[in-house]
Design a protein around this nucleic acid. Structure first.
Lengths: 152, 152
DNA sequence: ATCAAATGGTTTCATTATAAAACCGAATCA
DNA sequence: TGATTCGGTTTTATAATGAAACCATTTGAT
């Protein structure tokens, strides 16, 4: 959408992800959706986004399978926007962004919203690990590029 | 930068994060930095970004403490851009984006780059958990809003 | 039933950001 | 010493965004 250069052909999954949700508004809309918002007006009020832009973003989020338009909730005639499974699976992305923001973008002692387990109340975090469970930092990671056939 | 409305006052850490790195190019530059790139020309070639835009983005990433300009590497007079600790701590965000992209943005069997532990070769993943180690899905999460003092 | 207001957009237009290209000084390279 | 690359900046064209006006359909109140 905003991207001039489409990264959809890139072999780096991060790049493809950013191609789909890397624009300014999409992840904010998704965040609000995780927060329970479903309606046009809710998003619009929450984000202060222009209505035409919101309409466009909702459209592309639906096109891309992250949101689904569901006919009604309470019998009303309006439409709602719900996260699909694909959309819900952005949860770790949101948590990662949250965790980074908590650490670097708040003054010590400055209040911020917190993410907890609904049942136990325990704080929710995320960690990068290998499949045997050991924690991994960035410097221990290595990206294996996909072997290039014969193009330059 | 791109954001008309600054989310820097928002009490949601995700929103503040997106305010800082939520624009189209910043995370792609960070991805390349994780990939070992340090020089203007490397980023420019890799991303196909216009040079003026790249210069601007590098400037704001430095301003915001995500990249640091380091004088030289091999004695040369040129400048390099290195991830700061703050920048390296975006690693989980990159992994989360990668993981989501792998699942939803590639055809079955389509090749993509892989992230592995440099030493053991084991694949790197990330999971959302509570502090007692139990995995958490989005539907089990609850956002505790910061108590509002008296403003509307 | 009726009128007013809210909802969920679309359209139009002004403003802003982006991209492309030209340009430029300093450093490398031959 | 001359040509080329590097790391940008400036200028200009184009594309995206934001604000406001507008509109059809619902919803709510009388």
């Amino acid at each position: 959408m905003v991207g001039r250069k489409s990264l959809s052909g890139d072999y780096c999954p991060s790049a493809r992800s950013l191609d789909v949700i890397g624009d300014w508004w999409s992840l904010l809309i998704v965040r609000d959706a995780f927060d329970g918002m479903t309606r046009f007006g809710e998003f619009q009020k929450s984000l202060g986004i222009a209505k035409n832009i919101l309409a466009q973003r909702l459209r592309t989020l639906v096109e891309r399978g992250i949101l689904a338009p569901v006919p009604a909730a309470n019998g009303g005639a309006h439409q709602e926007y719900h996260l699909t499974e694909m959309g819900r699976d952005l949860f770790p992305v949101m948590v990662a962004l949250r965790q980074w923001g908590e650490r670097y973008l708040f003054e010590p002692g400055e209040p911020h919203s917190k993410l907890v387990d609904r049942d136990t109340g325990r704080p929710i975090r995320l960690d990068v690990r290998t499949d045997d469970g050991s924690a991994v930092t960035a410097d221990r990671a290595l990206i294996l590029k996909v072997p290039v056939a014969d193009e330059d």
